[in-house]
């Protein structure tokens, strides 16, 4: 084998592998789209939001296909968790970097990394066995939007904390030295210098955590009670879009199955938008 030939072979093999890796996401999008077509064509996008209820097993004519309560469930649990996890995550990152004694900060970071590695099904069983009975004592039935928000908060907190922490670390040392030379207090340095400098990193962290919250399935499925309704209080049981797929894929047929793929496509679209926004945020900071 001549040398030039072997180098060509190598280059094209690598290009081929990279191409395949890059095309997986297109394949996923394509398959979700193809499986969604029957529902989109026969049921139509409008009915997913205007039908009276979610009873999809009746077929195209007799069934009803209203996603809105589940979309509301996903929206409610995601926004609740993100609202709680953002301050907690940023606080954790600040603790690591500015407020903890040196050794403790490193140990705390490890601890948050451990929290990030716990499988969602383990959070789910903890919520089911520990958290739900506690909420039930306070406000029955216990399986509720609140349980989902709390479990999801603990789950996405490490994402916010770890990504914020790494963007805090990327703040140039000279900024801190400048702040120290001006005699700024610790809080004035953090609020006036560090957080503005790390802003785009923090935005990226929150966006990625939001994506994680939207897509989370198992924990949400196990603690929220899975009743299809628009929640009126945090103690109401609700069903998220992801939980709906997990619950019904096992027996869904025809239009029903296709409708589930439509909801999968919706989830995928939301995540693509969030990832695009986070890429945009981090690129803007690089060229700023």
């Amino acid at each position: 084998m001549s040398r030039q030939w072997s180098e060509h072979l190598l280059l094209w093999t690598l290009r081929g592998l990279a191409m395949v890796a890059g095309c997986i996401i297109l394949l996923i999008g394509a398959f979700l789209a193809v499986e969604s077509v029957p529902a989109l064509r026969e049921v139509g996008l409008g009915r997913f939001f205007s039908d009276t209820s979610w009873h999809p097993s009746g077929g195209v004519e007799a069934g009803s296909f209203n996603f809105a309560p589940m979309a509301a469930g996903t929206l409610a649990v995601t926004s609740g968790a993100v609202l709680l996890a953002t301050p907690l995550g940023i606080g954790s990152a600040l603790f690591c970097h500015f407020y903890a004694p040196r050794g403790l900060g490193v140990a705390f970071r490890r601890l948050v990394e451990l929290l990030a590695g716990i499988p969602s099904v383990v959070y789910g069983i903890w919520g089911l066995v520990v958290l739900i009975p506690l909420i039930r004592q306070w406000q029955p039935p216990g399986q509720s939007l609140l349980a989902g928000i709390l479990v999801l908060t603990i789950m996405i907190l490490p994402t916010v904390a770890l990504l914020t922490e790494s963007s805090l670390r990327a703040v140039p040392r000279s900024y801190l030295q400048g702040a120290a030379a001006l005699g700024l207090s610790r809080w004035a340095t953090v609020w006036g210098v560090v957080l503005p400098a790390a802003r785009s990193g923090i935005v990226t962290a929150v966006l990625l955590a939001t994506g994680r919250a939207i897509g989370e399935t198992m924990a949400v499925l196990m603690v929220m009670g899975n009743i299809v309704q628009v929640p009126t209080s945090v103690f109401d049981p609700v069903r998220a879009l992801t939980a709906n797929i997990a619950l019904e894929m096992g027996y869904a047929m025809d239009a029903h199955r296709s409708a589930l793929f439509v909801s999968g496509l919706m989830l995928l679209a939301m995540v693509v938008v969030l990832v695009a926004m986070s890429v945009w945020a981090s690129e803007r900071s690089r060229y700023a």
């Binding site: 890059g22 979700l32 499986e35 897509g215 797929i245 995540v271 990832v275």
Partner: peptide, 18 residues
Amino acid sequence: VRRSLDVLAGVPSIVFGL
């Protein structure tokens, strides 16, 4: 390839299941 891997990393696991 980089961009698609970024998106792939964010795809929810239930969508992988579908």
